[in-house]
Amino acid sequence: MSRAALLVLADGRFPAGGHAHSGGVEPAVKAGRVHGAASLAEFCRGRLHTAGLVSASLAAAAVLGLDPLALDEAADARTPSPALRATARKLGRQMMRAARAAWPSASLDALAVARPRGAHQPVVLGLAARAGGLSASDAAHCVAYETVSGPATAAVRLLSLDPFDATRVLAGLAPELDVVAERAVRAAVSATAEGLDALPAASAPLLDVMAEAHAAWPVRLFAS
């Protein structure tokens, strides 16, 4: 177990392309649904308990050694929006490049060959965490945190939100991040015995609607 490897993987400067994505907050700001710290916190909380939980469980399951291609298929079934599937694969491809540089491993190589256009990002992150000697809980925390840190960072740029307010939102969500990561790991452990239907499938209807609207914008600040 390496604690420092988790810092490397979770660092916002890890070159996996996440900074170009708003996690759905750009269309939410445009629609007036997110306009300040309080509405940002509710947005992040909802994303954490839906997309965040699902992604964290996929990553945890990958660390536990479940078949990455089956996990990739399970991720597709849990992502009805083609814009969000494309985003997840694009981020997965970038994560793959960075992960193979950081923690070369046969399992990452095999997934890169099987999914040359990119696997879903949490699956790649899970394999990277495993290669780096991290635990399922580490990977789940890392993914759950990304789910909220992306929108919070983007909101600073989109709303000219005070960065201190954005950081307060993230710190306020920390206890719920722990709960979600723990649920994700429990589900992943269940999935090793019961199959992948044991992984959560929590969905967020507005994120799906807004993702498709955003993908059609001619000009946007963030890729998703």
């Binding site: 509405s39 947005f43 909802g46 009805p80 499938a201 507005l206």
Partner: peptide, 23 residues
């Protein structure tokens, strides 16, 4: 698997269900 979607609302649901990401 083709589609897997779970929805949770109301006082017993995890937080954020009525926020701008979900409903």
């Amino acid at each position: 698997p083709l589609l897997d979607q779970a929805l949770a609302y109301g006082p017993g649901a995890p937080g954020g269900w009525n926020g701008s990401a979900v409903l």
